[in-house]
């Protein structure tokens, strides 16, 4: 059996340029995780059903198990490791919007894009965007509360506090 051909890819990830040598058939998910050590992006089903592996490609949420790495050349990729102190991360912490934390990066990437693209998102827009991700620990009510607070924070342009509060 022949080894599949490998290729060199130059990717733009979280504002950095990264070079990898990988199989042409490799998905973005495994290149991020195995070649670049960005393990915040989680495999859940490898079938586009659960949303755990969601990253942003040119600002659009994409399930990285469904996209070849080679397709992302020349595009800006953002993973959970590229987000710091965003309103949605703070809101997730405050609202206990996660438990085991495994689906969390995917949810946060998706919601971050939602907030950027639809700062005035109404209930039905929120619903449409978030139904692509599965959380098995929370009731989703906590996530809903976090999304709404983060949207509000974005609207009123409140800068998140850098002091990480441990009590609410």
């Amino acid at each position: 059996m022949e080894e599949t051909t490998k290729c060199e890819l130059v990717l733009h990830i979280n504002g950095e340029q990264r070079t990898v040598i990988t199989r042409q058939a490799e998905t973005l998910l495994f290149v991020l995780r195995d070649e670049l050590g960005l393990t915040g992006t989680k495999p859940g089903c490898l079938n586009g059903d659960c949303g755990a592996c969601t990253v942003l490609v040119n600002g659009t949420p994409i399930k990285s198990c469904m996209m070849l790495a080679i397709e992302t050349v020349g595009k800006e990729i953002t993973t959970i490791e590229g987000l710091r102190d965003t309103p949605i991360q703070h809101a997730f912490v405050r609202h206990f919007a996660f438990q085991c934390g495994y689906c969390t990066p995917g949810f946060i990437m998706n919601i971050h894009a939602l907030i950027e693209q639809h700062p005035n998102a109404d209930q039905s827009t929120i619903q449409e965007w978030l139904q692509s991700n599965i959380c098995r620990c929370t009731s989703y009510q906590e996530i809903e509360a976090a999304v709404k607070e983060a949207l509000q924070a974005k609207k009123t342009d409140i800068q998140p506090s850098h002091n990480r509060i441990s009590r609410v």
């Binding site: 912490v93 996660f98 934390g101």
Partner: peptide
Amino acid sequence: KSIIRKEAWDKVTG
């Protein structure tokens, strides 16, 4: 008290 879980920030940052 609703103490925030100790690993919270690890979980929202990947």
